[in-house]
């Protein structure tokens, strides 16, 4: 997949492409975790006054993971939820971009539900590859798939924004990347058809919809088609998880962003022998885990995204 394949508004588009963040073997990425904490989680009176809405993203809670990179993934999810509860301005809802559990066990889903429900927010889920590995591949759908299509994709509207939850972790092909598949892509095209181009669009899925690092499978085979369907919209935000680190890219009207995990960090592309869990000193762990808050103000083209680590 190549971004050369997208065609849009001529020169300005091309300039954007030239400025894109690809360089050498990987991507240059903006770490927004360095945002001063005082700007913090949408707290402030300012956010309350603004005509708009805010929501939260959590991702990759991997309940059941107990390896050295974080023997207590349950505990760090609890800390993340505690942080959300302590926020001065209550977000409208939360999205979870998959890998709720580590091994799709009923007990892991139960633990995740018990902890996440403490946030007392509606949660919109999409599955990660770790959520569909129970023998009968039914637990995720039973719990989170009501009213969804296929393996769990759907759309909804909130605060003037159109949200689309996509599934790119099923029916993967040998040698390939994440996969949306024809049926889902056709549905997406129809779902977006006829909507006002001024409607802000948020696409969320587990694996990045753009190609971050294919050598580690960090990308979606047919993600370009999904991005093609949103290219006429004035404001598009693509939110993903899977890579357990913050990475952001802005391309024309599209902002791509990945959230931290609440369970364990993964290495930056190409900096380790594999994308597996990264063991860091205990004192650093919580600075590499966290949540993202996203706010939308009427009239602003871009949604503001603030990543907040559990600590630091």
């Amino acid at each position: 997949m190549s971004y050369h394949d997208y065609h849009e508004d001529g020169v300005s588009r091309r300039r954007v492409l030239e400025c894109m963040t690809w360089a050498g073997t990987g991507v240059l990425w903006t770490v927004t975790g360095g945002v001063p904490r005082s700007l913090g989680l949408i707290g402030s009176a300012e956010a309350a006054e603004a005509a708009g809405m805010s929501f939260l993203q959590i991702s990759d809670s991997h309940i059941g993971f107990d390896k050295p990179a974080n023997p207590n993934a349950k505990g760090t999810l609890e800390e993340a939820i505690e942080k959300i509860r302590a926020m001065p301005a209550k977000p409208s809802f939360m999205i979870h971009t998959g890998d709720i559990t580590h091994l799709s066990k009923a007990s892991e889903f139960d633990d995740a539900d018990r902890i996440i429900s403490q946030a007392k927010l509606d949660v919109h889920y999409v599955p990660g590859e770790h959520d569909i590995i129970d023998e009968e591949v039914k637990l995720y759908k039973e719990r989170y798939g009501r009213g969804t299509r296929g393996a769990g994709y759907y759309s909804f509207d909130a605060g003037g924004v159109h949200f689309v939850g996509l599934v790119n972790v099923v029916d993967l092909k040998g040698g390939g990347l994440g996969n949306l598949g024809n049926e889902q892509l056709e549905w997406l095209e129809n779902d977006l058809k006829g909507r006002s181009k001024s409607t802000p669009i948020v696409l969320f899925a587990h694996i990045p919809l753009w190609t971050v690092y294919p050598q580690w499978g960090w990308g979606t085979e047919d993600g370009a088609r999904a991005l093609d369907y949103v290219k006429g919209f004035g404001s598009v935000t693509v939110l993903n998880g899977h890579i357990h680190q913050v990475m952001q890219k802005i391309e024309g009207n599209v902002t791509f962003h990945t959230a931290r995990s609440t369970a364990f960090p993964q290495p930056a592309p190409g900096t380790a022998p594999s994308p597996g869990p990264m063991k860091v000193e205990d004192s650093r762990l919580r600075s590499l885990l966290g949540v993202a808050s996203i706010s939308f103000k009427q009239g602003d083209q871009r949604l503001a995204i603030i990543d907040t680590p559990l600590q630091g």
């Binding site: 390896k67 091994l103 799709s104 590859e129 770790h130 590995i133 023998e135 993967l172 092909k173 040998g174 040698g175 390939g176 990347l177 294919p214 050598q215 580690w216 499978g217």
Partner: peptide, 30 residues
């Protein structure tokens, strides 16, 4: 089935041929 850490899977090959396989969770693994 899904193999967790130290999990194993065995298969007995009874027919000659090339068997290309992959990990369905991480399909770049072949």
């Amino acid at each position: 089935k899904t193999m967790d850490t130290d999990g194993t899977f065995s298969f007995t090959f009874t027919v000659p041929g090339d068997y290309r396989y992959f990990c369905s969770l991480h399909p770049h693994m072949t």
